[in-house]
């Protein structure tokens, strides 16, 4: 990967993605061998929005590379509360770290931040925008379980605000993957994501019900539909119920179907599904560590070689 920052999955080529996944696989095979790799390096974790898994996953990844992490703490206690701009915060934190991870509630925040820092910056979620490292671990999980070529995927749930969906859909255009999008009409793909898909020549197949496509799917990627997206509770309950799966539903699916979810789930996937061979979402979450190790390793490597020139 020859990128300085990772802001959006749209910037990734097939070669970029495969390079990260290959290195992740190498790391996964013998994690301890990478322990001394970035001793002395510091990763700055800038989370302007609550996050448990993504933050811990980056933290672990950096420590398993032998590096350390610094954390700005909760937004409530930080200078952000005192009205400091994101631009200023990033300029200050840049001086403390060799690379930065940013999670922020506004779209375009990571892109803007790159204009103020020189160290590698990774977008760990910008509002309803992008979440490219989630996508890399999603692709890693897909590759391990279903492959990335001649595959049919159904992406279901909140496609409008779901940043993991936006990143994944964009990245999948690099591969021979047929994408089906399943959501209530009010939560279908936003115009900007459609635009990118069309630009890449990808076909956008949309459905309001899982029923008609489920038997064709090799992968089902489920995302959460949030209550806040609906004006009233009844409307939410009515709609959300249509996009939940249990073992009865899965009887009509291929035996080899891989079910994924970026987590946390609420009730989109019934707990009984966890016990089936379809369930790969916990494995998917665990893959976040080797994949983020691979990505950090490559970004830090790039940054060091640039310094030496």
């Amino acid at each position: 990967m020859r990128q300085d920052h990772l802001i959006s999955a749209t910037q990734l080529s097939r070669e970029d993605i495969e390079a990260v996944l290959d290195r992740a696989a190498e790391i996964d095979g013998d994690m301890d061998a990478w322990q001394g790799r970035h001793a002395g390096s510091v990763l700055g974790l800038c989370f302007f929005e609550p996050s448990t898994r993504t933050r811990m996953s980056f933290d672990t990844a950096m420590k398993r590379l032998g590096g350390r992490t610094i954390d700005m703490g909760s937004v409530e206690s930080s200078s952000v509360k005192k009205g400091e701009t994101l631009a200023d915060t990033m300029r200050v934190v840049e001086g403390y770290a060799d690379a930065l991870v940013l999670r922020h509630p506004l779209e375009g925040s990571a892109k803007m931040a790159t204009e103020f820092v020189d160290v590698p910056l990774v977008n760990a979620g910008d509002g309803a925008g992008q979440h490219p490292t989630q996508t890399l671990l999603d692709l890693y999980t897909m590759r391990e379980n279903a492959g990335l070529d001649d595959v049919t995927i159904g992406i279901m749930g909140d496609l409008k605000y779901g940043r993991t969906v936006h990143s994944l859909a964009a990245a999948l255009t690099n591969f021979d993957v047929r994408q089906h999008f399943i959501s209530p009409e009010s939560l279908s793909l936003p115009r900007s994501v459609r635009y990118d898909l069309h630009e890449e020549g990808a076909q956008v197949r949309e459905h309001t019900s899982l029923e008609e496509v489920l038997p064709d799917l090799d992968v089902l990627y489920v995302t959460r539909i949030q209550r806040e997206r609906f004006p009233d509770e009844n409307e939410y309950l009515k709609v959300a119920g249509e996009y939940q799966i249990d073992t009865d539903d899965l009887e009509r699916a291929k035996e080899s179907l891989t079910v994924m979810h970026p987590l946390p789930r609420v009730d989109e996937i019934a707990p009984e599904v966890d016990e089936t061979s379809h369930a790969k979402y916990f494995e998917q979450a665990h893959n976040g560590v080797p994949v983020r190790m691979a990505l950090l390793d490559m970004l830090l490597e790039n940054a060091t070689s640039e310094d030496g020139q």
Partner: peptide, 13 residues
């Protein structure tokens, strides 16, 4: 037009 865009926040951009 996206109210949730960073350019609509109070940032120097």
């Amino acid at each position: 037009p996206n109210r949730n865009c960073i350019t609509n926040a109070d940032e120097p951009v």
